[in-house]
Design a protein around this nucleic acid. Structure first.
Length: 110
DNA sequence: CTATTGACGACAT
DNA sequence: CATGTCGCCAATA
């Protein structure tokens, strides 16, 4: 099952589908803010709602929900623990220091 | 339909 | 830099 087909078939809201699909575009080693992702998904301003969607995340490893961070540079929450989230991001090459993205200003996607 | 809830965000203190 | 407040949005009760 490819990620894309499972998502499209999944019994979830259109909002969530778009968010998950948009997140698939974010390459490894790069991060997006909840707000930016919301915008990419076509729901500008729905940063908080995106967070809720990530929390549900029915496609755990497939959808890289750990690449979504806060606009202030902090990594934000994670269903399996912030600690875990940071570890995964570092493994992908994202530089983090004290729960904060070091060169966040340069990393953040439009 | 209204009220509550949260992996957020901008700003003030 | 660390909190607190208030606003925001879609999901859910």
């Amino acid at each position: 099952m490819s990620n894309l087909s499972s998502i499209n078939k999944a019994d979830i809201s259109d909002f969530e589908k778009r968010v998950y699909l948009a997140l698939l575009k974010v390459p490894k080693g790069q991060v997006v803010t909840y707000g930016a992702l919301a915008k990419l998904a076509g729901f500008p301003g729905a940063a908080r709602a995106v967070g809720s969607a990530m929390n549900k995340n029915p496609f755990a490893p497939s959808v890289a929900c750990h690449r979504v961070v806060r606009s202030d540079g902090s990594v934000g929450e994670f269903a399996y623990g912030t600690k875990r989230k940071i570890a995964m991001l570092r493994k992908e090459g994202v530089r983090i220091e004290k729960e904060r993205i070091t060169d966040f200003k340069e990393i953040k996607i439009a």
